[in-house]
Amino acid sequence: MSEPSAIVPEGARGAVARLIDERRAQGSGILVGYLPIGFPDLATSIDAAVALAENGVDVIELGPPYSDPVMDGPVIQAATQQALANGFKLRHTFEAVRGITERCDAPVLVMSYWNPVQQYGVERYAAALEDAGAAGMITPDLIPDEAGDWFEASDRHGLERVFLAAPSSSEARLATVAERSRGFVYAVSTMGITGARADVDAAARGLVGRLRDAGAERACVGIGVSTAEQVREILGYADGAIVGSALVKALADGGVDALGRLAAELAAGKA
């Protein structure tokens, strides 16, 4: 297996990296919004993702439902379990990406646990993502040391690859993640599962600083982000803020209209 190149040519930057660089030049950052595919049904989940883009969310993070979601909190778990009960199939991932990219310009990142990708076939999965118009993939339970197949497939299909970093990560791990991520590094703001929190841990600021020292060009903060004030605070030191559970709850409680309103409120934090 080939090792990923440490240096990415300027022309090889993907859509998310380009967007972050543009916003940074303007003195701002990006807002990333997460939604599970197939909740409350496939068609509505596509409409919901488009509504995010129409209300100020810059990058859409799509989560294929998975039966063992080790990082997901109760809100997202409930949504993904409903999607699975409704008959979600892996092919719906690519249908959803295509349905969204045909209706809006926001880059789409698929957030997938690694086992379904392996079962589908890494090369086949990457090719399907490219064909559907995805920008790349976030892999929460894949570490760079075990990602040789993904390096090759993502490079071959021009896909950004986002690895996670946590406050507990060693300096060596941060350096590896910084070197091998494409697009940005996902900085986990706190240890634990997803879910809105009143305060995003101060550890997030320290983690982003450590990632910068380790060579990360771009870092976005997620886990626990739920208000415009938190978005504004995060964009003071990071390149992006990632919101998940709060958006899923809005969709569950009030449908696509409520989701759009919350997205617009969160986007106000970019100002």
Rank of each mutant, 00 (worst) to 15 (best):
227 T>N: 09
103 R>Q: 12
93 T>N: 05
85 A>F: 02
162 V>L: 02
137 M>A: 14
99 G>P: 04
240 G>E: 01
123 E>I: 12
98 R>A: 15
101 T>C: 09
104 C>P: 00
151 F>Y: 15
4 P>K: 02
32 V>N: 03
93 T>A: 03
175 A>T: 13
67 S>W: 10
20 I>C: 04
165 A>L: 08
4 P>R: 12
162 V>T: 00
168 S>F: 00
120 Y>N: 06
15 A>H: 04
81 Q>R: 15
261 R>V: 14
93 T>F: 02
171 E>V: 10
172 A>E: 15
113 Y>R: 11
138 I>F: 00
177 V>D: 07
263 A>L: 01
226 S>P: 09
89 K>M: 14
104 C>D: 09
174 L>H: 09
84 L>H: 04
256 V>T: 05
80 T>F: 04
24 R>M: 08
263 A>Q: 06
199 D>F: 15
182 R>W: 10
102 E>I: 01
185 V>G: 02
136 G>T: 01
51 A>Y: 10
29 G>S: 09
207 L>R: 09
104 C>S: 04
98 R>I: 03
126 A>I: 08
180 R>K: 14
82 Q>Y: 13
59 V>F: 05
83 A>P: 07
2 S>P: 14
27 G>V: 11
176 T>L: 13
182 R>H: 03
225 V>R: 11
189 S>F: 12
141 D>T: 00
208 V>K: 06
37 I>M: 05
71 M>Y: 14
141 D>F: 01
188 V>Q: 08
193 I>R: 15
49 A>S: 14
140 P>T: 04
30 I>W: 01
170 S>R: 12
190 T>M: 14
148 G>I: 00
29 G>Y: 01
133 G>I: 00
115 N>V: 04
229 E>T: 08
151 F>R: 09
104 C>A: 05
17 A>H: 10
246 A>T: 10
208 V>G: 14
169 S>T: 10
132 A>V: 00
117 V>Y: 06
213 D>Q: 15
207 L>I: 04
67 S>R: 12
180 R>S: 07
111 M>N: 09
224 G>Y: 14
90 L>V: 13
178 A>L: 05
206 G>E: 15
149 D>V: 04
193 I>C: 08
187 A>M: 03
170 S>I: 12
247 L>D: 01
140 P>H: 02
10 E>V: 14
241 A>V: 00
